[in-house]
Design a protein around this nucleic acid. Structure first.
Lengths: 337, 337
DNA sequence: CTGTTAGCGCCTTCAT
DNA sequence: ATGAAGGCGCTAACAG
C-alpha cells in the first residue's frame, strides 16, 4: 500500500538515486526525467519516509520548541508564529513544555529527549541558567532564544530596559511620583531575564527623574494574573500612598486591577496601572500598555534558526519595538485629568 | 562522539540484539545482563536514534496535534494538556497549525505532511467536514477529537447543548425574556460543531420556557473578541430591546462587553452577558460563564489516543462537565436585583 | 546525466 | 537467554 522510492523508480524507469535527486530538486537531472519521476511519484501517491531520510542524512527537518507553557499569551503567540514560519519552510515543530519549578533541576533530562531528534532548538520565554545553556550547547545544534536571551547566543526580544523606562516615563509624565513596580519572582535574578531588566529600567527611569524608589515599592511575585493580584495586595498594604503601578506584564497588570477593585479602589482614579505585552484582553479592560508583537518574534526567530542551519550569518540580537497604547487605566493622580 | 547501539554492545560484552532488548525492558534478558547493559549505556551517554528506531519498527512515538491556532484560550490549554500527557508517556507532540479559511480546502496538503511521521492524530477544536475526516481516516492511524467531534469517532468534549441550555436558564431565571445569542460563523453548519450545538441549545431552552426566538436575536460572527464585538454591535442595531446575551465563548462575551460599552451602555444594568469557557481573564472582567477544563480535555484525549495505539478499548465519547460561575456580568433586567 | 553500491542505527526473526 | 544477519527506506559517494 505504502509505496517506496523503489516503486517510483520502477514506475519511472530510472534508478532510486535519480528519483531521490529529482524529487528533491537537485541538479544533474534532465527536465524530462524529472517530470517523468514527478508524475510517477504522484500517480503512486508516494510520500517519502522522514525516518529513512533522517537516518541517511542525519538531519530531521524538525525544530524543537522548548517552552515552559503554551497557555500564556506570550508563549502561545511565539509558538504559533514559529510553527507557521517553520511549516512554510517544510520543517516540523516539536513541542517541549515542562513545569518551571524554581529550585528544581529542569533540563537535566531534556538533552536526551532532544538528541538526534531535531536540527535546532528555539527556547521560548525561558531565562536559562548558565549550566542549562551549556547543556543545550552541548547538544551541538543551533539555538535561538526568544524573549529572555542568553549570553553570546542569538536572541530575539525586546529592549526591556527601554520599555520599562518608557512605561515609567508615561506615568511620571502624567504627574505621578509614587510609582511602584510589580516584578517577577525574587529568585529570578539572571541578568538576561526580562523581569530583572524591566525592574532595572523602572529603577533607572525613577532615578533619572529624581523619584524615590523607597521601601516596599517593588513587589515580587508570579508572572500571571494571580501573581499580579497577590503582589498588588501586598503593595497596597505596604504603600497605601501609591498612585501608579508599572506591572511587568499585562497579565500581572490585570491581576493588579483586580486587587485594586478588591479594596474598593478605582482605576485610574485611585491608582493608575500600566502593563507590557498588548494582550488581547487588555483592550477589553482598557489597560494602558506597551505592546509587542510576540507572533512575529516567534516567526522571526524560527526563520533565523533555519538560516543558521544553512550556515547563513544572522544578527546576534534582533530587538523588537514596543508601542505605547494609551487606554483608560492611566490618568493623572487623583482622577481624570 | 555520538555512541550507537554497537558501542554499548561492545562495552557490555553482548550483542546489539541483547542491548536492544535490555534497554527496552523486553523479557528474555537475565537481570545481571540487563544491569550490565544499562550501566554501559549510561556510561557512554547512549541515546537511541528515533529515526533508526522508527525506520525499523514503523512506529514514531510521535503524535500529531492538529489545530487551527495555538494563541486562543481553548486551543492553548488543550495543546498544553495533551503535550504534558504525551511526554509523560515518552511520546513527542508534533504541532500542525494552519489558517482555517472558510471555503478554502484545508487538509488537502496535510495528509502528506502527516504520513509516516506520526502514530496518531489529535484534532483540536476543528469541526471537520466529512471529506476531511475521510482524508484523515485514510492515513490509517488512530484519531481522537477534542472539542468538536466527528461522527463515529472518539471524541472528548462538552455537552454543548446542555451547556447552552443552562446558560439561557441562568439568564431566564434572572427574569430576562429577550435573550440573544452570539453564535459562530454562518457557514459553520456541521452538526458536530460546538457553535451549532450551542445555538441549538439556546433555541431549545428558549422554546422550553416559551420565550421568543425572534428575528435578529441570533447573530453570527467570528469566534473571538473582535467577532463578539462586531456581532454585539449588529445585535444592538437590530434589537435595542435586548436585555441579555448568551455568547458562545468567553472571548466573544468579552467582545460583547466592549461593544456594549462602546454604546455607552452598562453591564449588567443595561445588558447582561454570559459566556462559555472559564477564560482566565473572565474573572478580571467579572464575566459570568460556564467554565470547562480545556487542559484536562487535552490530557485525557492524549491518554486515550495512546490507549488506542495499544489496542485498548476506549469510550466513544468522553463528556466533560461545565460549571456555572456567577460573577457580575449578569443580573436581573434593569439593574442589580 | 544516471546507475551502483554502501551504509545510516536499530529491530527482529531465526538459530543456537 | 543470547547471537547472527537481514532489512526498514533513503541518501551519498563513486563510477560510468
Amino acid at each position: 500500500m505504502a509505496h517506496g522510492i523503489v516503486d517510483v523508480a520502477r514506475a519511472a524507469g530510472v534508478s532510486t538515486a535519480t528519483v531521490s535527486r529529482a524529487l528533491r530538486g537537485l541538479p544533474n537531472v534532465t527536465e524530462s526525467t524529472r517530470q517523468r519521476v514527478l508524475r510517477a511519484a504522484d500517480d503512486l501517491g508516494y510520500v517519502p519516509s522522514p525516518s529513512a531520510a533522517s537516518l541517511a542524512t542525519g538531519r530531521t527537518r524538525t525544530i524543537g520548541l522548548i517552552s515552559p507553557w503554551v497557555s500564556h499569551w506570550f508563549f502561545a503567540n511565539v509558538i504559533e508564529g514559529a510553527e507557521r514560519a517553520l511549516r512554510a519552510e517544510g520543517f516540523d515543530a516539536l513541542l517541549y513544555t515542562f513545569e518551571v519549578e524554581r529550585g528544581a533541576r529542569r533540563l537535566d533530562l531534556d538533552p536526551g529527549v532532544l538528541r538526534r531528534r531535531v536540527d535546532g532548538v528555539l527556547v521560548v520565554g525561558l531565562p536559562l541558567e548558565p549550566p542549562e545553556i551549556a547543556t543545550l550547547d552541548e547538544l551541538g545544534y543551533p539555538l535561538v532564544f526568544v524573549g529572555p536571551g542568553a549570553p553570546d547566543h542569538v536572541t530575539v526580544g525586546l529592549d526591556d530596559v527601554d520599555t520599562a523606562r518608557r512605561a515609567v516615563a508615561h506615568l511620571a509624565g502624567l504627574g505621578h511620583r509614587v510609582i511602584a513596580h510589580l516584578s517577577g519572582e525574587p529568585d529570578d535574578v539572571l541578568a538576561w531575564s526580562p523581569a530583572v531588566r524591566r525592574a532595572h529600567g523602572w529603577r533607572t527611569e525613577m532615578a533619572a527623574r529624581g523619584l524615590a524608589v523607597s521601601a516596599g515599592l517593588e513587589v515580587h511575585g508570579h508572572f500571571d494574573v494571580a501573581g499580579g493580584r497577590a503582589s498588588m495586595h501586598r503593595l497596597l498594604d505596604a504603600r497605601p500612598d501609591v498612585t501608579a503601578v508599572f506591572a511587568a506584564s499585562d497579565e500581572m497588570a490585570m491581576g493588579a486591577i483586580l486587587a485594586i477593585r478588591d479594596r474598593g479602589l478605582r482605576v485610574p482614579e485611585d491608582v493608575s496601572v500600566i502593563g507590557v505585552d498588548g494582550h488581547q484582553m487588555a483592550e477589553v479592560l482598557g489597560l494602558t500598555t506597551l505592546a509587542q508583537d510576540a507572533w512575529d518574534q516567534g516567526a522571526t526567530a524560527a526563520t533565523m534558526l533555519l538560516e543558521l542551519l544553512t550556515g547563513a550569518p544572522v544578527p546576534r540580537d534582533v530587538v523588537f519595538p514596543t508601542t505605547l497604547i494609551e487606554r483608560t487605566s492611566t490618568a493623572p493622580p487623583g482622577g481624570i485629568g
